[in-house]
Amino acid sequence: MKEKFKLKAEYITLGQFLKETMIISSGGMAKWYLRENAVFVDGELETRRGRKLYAGMMIEIPEEGTFFMEKMTDESSEDQLNEIN
């Protein structure tokens, strides 16, 4: 499944992204999750929870989906913050 993730700031870390998308329930789980599961950022395996994700990047998580990072536009409303379409 392909989804869009709207950034409300310049970037989000991979650990924060996993929590925001509800793949993990707490930030402390990020290190464990990345050790046990494959996560690809722009086609390369990523194991760093602090990896910065910017608009235009693609995150692939087998069995979870593919996510495209997008910068939130000025026209976006409050309820669209970090919305997953």
Results as ranks from 00 to 15, higher is better:
E10H: 02
M72I: 14
S76V: 00
S77F: 07
Y54F: 15
V39K: 05
G28I: 05
A38E: 15
E60I: 03
M22P: 00
Q80F: 06
G15L: 12
R51W: 11
I61E: 11
F17C: 03
F5Y: 15
I24V: 04
R48G: 08
F5I: 04
I24H: 03
E10W: 01
A30F: 04
M58V: 09
M57E: 14
M1F: 04
E63C: 05
A55K: 01
M58E: 14
G15Y: 13
E63G: 01
I23E: 12
E63R: 10
T21S: 14
E64N: 13
M69A: 05
M29V: 08
T66D: 13
Q16W: 08
E70I: 02
T73A: 06
V39G: 04
G50F: 08
L45C: 00
A9L: 10
S26L: 05
M1S: 08
S25Y: 05
T73E: 12
V39M: 11
I61Y: 06
F40P: 01
M57C: 03
G27V: 03
G43N: 15
E83W: 06
L7C: 05
Q80R: 00
T47W: 03
N82V: 02
I61K: 02
I23K: 07
Y33K: 06
M69D: 08
M57N: 07
S77E: 13
M58S: 06
E60L: 10
M29E: 15
K6C: 03
S77R: 05
K19P: 04
M69P: 00
M57T: 01
E3N: 11
G28V: 04
K8D: 14
I61R: 02
A38D: 15
A30T: 02
S76P: 00
T47A: 10
K8T: 14
E20N: 09
E60K: 06
A38L: 14
E70A: 06
E63Q: 14
S26M: 11
T73P: 00
F5S: 03
N82Y: 13
M29A: 14
G50K: 08
S76G: 00
K52M: 11
D42T: 04
E75D: 08
G27I: 07
E20D: 12
G50Y: 08
L14E: 13
F17T: 01
N82K: 09
N37W: 08
D79T: 00
G56F: 07
K31C: 06
I59M: 13
I24K: 01
L7F: 06
I59K: 07
L81P: 00
V39A: 10
I84H: 11
V41R: 10
A9M: 07
K52C: 07
E20W: 05
E44G: 03
L34G: 05
S76A: 08
L45S: 03
S76Y: 00
S26H: 08
G65V: 04
Y33G: 05
A55Y: 00
I23L: 11
L14V: 10
L7K: 03
E75W: 02
F5C: 03
E20C: 05
I23V: 12
I61T: 04
N37D: 11
E64S: 12
E10K: 04
E75M: 04
E83H: 04
